[in-house]
Amino acid sequence: MPTIEVYHGAAASFWRVMAIARRHAYVLQRSPHRLFDIIVWPVVDVILFGTIGVFAAGRLGGAGQVALYLLVGVVLWHVVYQAQISLATGFLEETWSRTVLSLLVTPMREWEYVAGVALFGLVKLLGGVGAVALIAWAAYAFKITTLGWGLIPVAALLLAVGWAIALFVIGLVLRFGSGAEALAWGILFVVMPLSGTFYPVSALPAVLRPIGTLLPTTHAFAAGRAFAQGAATPWHELGLAAAGTAVMLALGFGYVVWMLRVFRARGFVTRYS
């Protein structure tokens, strides 16, 4: 009988993270309909908003700005969207395939699972955002590289916000069961208009502006537009976005840990077994 050799500590964690990422790669490979989130929606969005931008540019004086706002907005929006949807639906996959109990009864720690799903989510994100950027360039001559190096911090902040929202969704699914899964897709469509994705937050109705101002996405999109227009580095917006993102991540982690405790205390695992 072959001997059993076991990893310990960081090496064991690394391979667990990789194993979870690989498990989700198999799911995507064998579920072509999942490409809808990664390819189809992004392409539909960029064509929709890019075309509105081009139409507006033709009708309004100096409306090149509108096209820029829309194209920068749609490309950056898909960073949030892909980050959020890949992590949230990654966990939902475990509920659909009823593997929650089997995973809970392994030495895997919660953060290793989240890291594994998020890691494969990065691959999906590259696919989705790549598709958006490619269509924006091919159809509307918009190069995402016009954001320059500023693209990196803006995309990193939006990525982290997407993960924070996904943690919140996972917490809701742990607490309320499959009934909450619609939020995996729906919650983003509450965040998007409030975040000034395609317009400055000052364009929102006055009553909604304070909410928009509180969201880190609002400041990240504003920073992205500033970079695209070649303005000076918007440190103020980046700082607000970073602070807000840190708060959202802390709240997201705190909420999911709390809900996992409730999940175990109330025996909700039997919903998925």
């Binding site: 076991v6 990893y7 990789m18 395939s97 109990l101 995973l103 030495p107 895997m108």
Partner: peptide, 22 residues
């Protein structure tokens, strides 16, 4: 408990072997 639908048996076993640290 079912087996995951979108994995081959050997992939499923490899996953849990990795989770066990093998």
């Amino acid at each position: 408990l079912p087996l995951p639908e979108r994995m081959r048996v050997v992939e499923y076993l490899r996953l849990y072997a990795r989770l066990a640290g093998l």
